[in-house]
Design a binder for these strands. Structure first.
Lengths: 136, 136
DNA sequence: TATTAGTTGATAATGGTTATTATATGGAGA
DNA sequence: TCTCCATATAATAACCATTATCAACTAATA
């Protein structure tokens, strides 16, 4: 994520820290994750600042909001086309960059003007599988 | 949806009504949608009963919970393999039954044991496109 | 019909997100 | 560099979907 000047976005230490945190981050953090990671550096930072900043980054297309986790929003600084592997136990999300042929006929589009697509794979991640084996 | 006896599920008028409402329903309703649609018939019904019933139907595999809408959970009584067309403006969700080749190599699985997948297409539905044209 | 385990409905509690607002400040212009 | 003000921050209240609690009720079985 380019941490440069941007039209109508005043750069503050908090925003710079959030953008640095997101740059190259592949953990798909929630607002609380971001907040928690930056509290050490900015003890007075508010969760509202995180949400506010994410909203702006979203509008600028520098971040994508994911609906992957039913419990909370998660954010993805990788805005290029890619797909996700989701652990149904621990909610871990891993990026995959495989491309799939996802063409639809006009009929299959049901009158929609398609602008994008996304593939989610569900499964059990290695860590959770190991933990399960451990318990048995 | 078969509205028959089911192991460890006591059939009540409320549950029967919810299951009838879901049977063949393609609107991917939220708990509030279901509640609102049945209030006329059951003025005393509680939202808690809807959530409780959906939880049981989910456990029984008669319904799938969707994370498509960041604002609320939505439910899909169609538990067979299919994909979704999602309107980014009105959140309408339309089913499509096209099958795509979605194989992953072992490397691409990143240690996950894959159990399923789902393709979401994003776009503007016909109604929203028409409404937009109207305004301009 | 009597029994009882499971369900309902009312409502409180929870947790994530959004709104509000007084105070502080980044950054453009003097 | 200094001033000024539009905008951001932080604290916290409000909001809303979901979950938890529990006393009263009831479907299912004997």
């Amino acid at each position: 994520m380019e941490i440069d000047q941007h039209k109508s976005m005043k750069m503050t230490p908090q925003r710079i820290a959030i953008m640095k945190y997101l740059d190259g981050n592949v953990t798909h953090p929630s607002a609380a994750d971001i907040y928690g990671s930056l509290r050490g550096e900015f003890p007075t930072m508010s969760l509202a600042t995180v949400y506010n900043t994410m909203e702006i980054l979203k509008e600028q297309g520098r971040v994508v909001e994911l609906s992957i986790d039913p419990a909370k929003k998660r954010f993805d600084p990788n805005v290029g086309p890619h797909h996700h592997l989701i652990c149904t136990q621990c909610s871990k999300v891993v990026d995959i960059f495989t491309e799939f042929p996802l063409g639809l006929t006009e009929d299959e589009k049901h009158g929609f003007k398609i602008v994008g697509n996304h593939v989610d794979f569900y499964g059990i991640c290695g860590d959770c599988a190991a933990a399960e084996k451990e318990r048995s």
